[in-house]
């Protein structure tokens, strides 16, 4: 059952990722990205990282994607993007980089599955919370300061324009 779910989800994830790259209409691309992020959340769920899956959907598929859609809607009033792609040059780099990535994946797969230790602990909210406030307290607090700085920065930028 788990394997079937995994393969179906992975297939959808890959298909939506391809759709995201191929579609020229930026809004279609963004919607494909929603599907992709949702699939990744399902994969987290299969790994028993429940909290991570829920957070992924709330933050990425919910909040951040909405921000993307919003920006696209406001900045690009036209429909599909037409004309020359301003990033044409980057396509040249895509092929070797993609090949290198595939090679890396191949090498990793060749080495067989990674040495399996104890099965990962269930990633419920309680476990994540306990880790955040014990072992990872410092990174957690630094992230909080970083987010606060970003918030203040956004405010300053918005004020200057007004």
């Amino acid at each position: 059952m788990e394997q079937v779910t995994f393969f179906v989800t992975a297939l959808i994830a890959v298909a939506s990722a391809i759709g995201l790259v191929v579609r020229r209409n930026p809004l279609h691309g963004a919607l494909f990205l929603v599907v992709n992020l949702f699939c990744v959340a399902v994969l987290y769920l299969l790994l028993r990282a429940e909290f991570l899956a829920a957070a992924q959907v709330i933050i990425y598929a919910g909040a951040i994607m909405v921000l993307f859609l919003f920006a696209i809607m406001i900045l690009i009033p036209g429909r599909a993007e037409t004309g020359r792609d301003p990033f044409r040059r980057q396509r040249l780099a895509a092929l070797p980089l993609g090949a290198a990535f595939l090679l890396l994946v191949g090498v990793l797969m060749w080495g067989g599955p990674p040495p399996g230790g104890a099965p990962p602990p269930p990633g419920g909210a309680a476990a994540v919370g306990r880790l955040l406030f014990t072992d990872y307290l410092l990174p957690f607090e630094i992230t909080a300061v970083l987010l606060l700085a970003a918030l203040v920065g956004a405010l300053v930028l918005a004020r200057r324009r007004a």
Binding site: A53, A54, V57, G62, V66, G124
Partner: peptide
């Protein structure tokens, strides 16, 4: 009866926004 029941609820219900947006656009 998930042990992250409330989180699941919030996560799924926030997806509604995508449908609304698709309809409008």
């Amino acid at each position: 009866d998930l042990n992250i029941g409330l989180l699941y609820f919030l996560a799924v219900s926030s997806l509604e926004i995508v449908g609304l947006f698709m309809g409008g656009w």
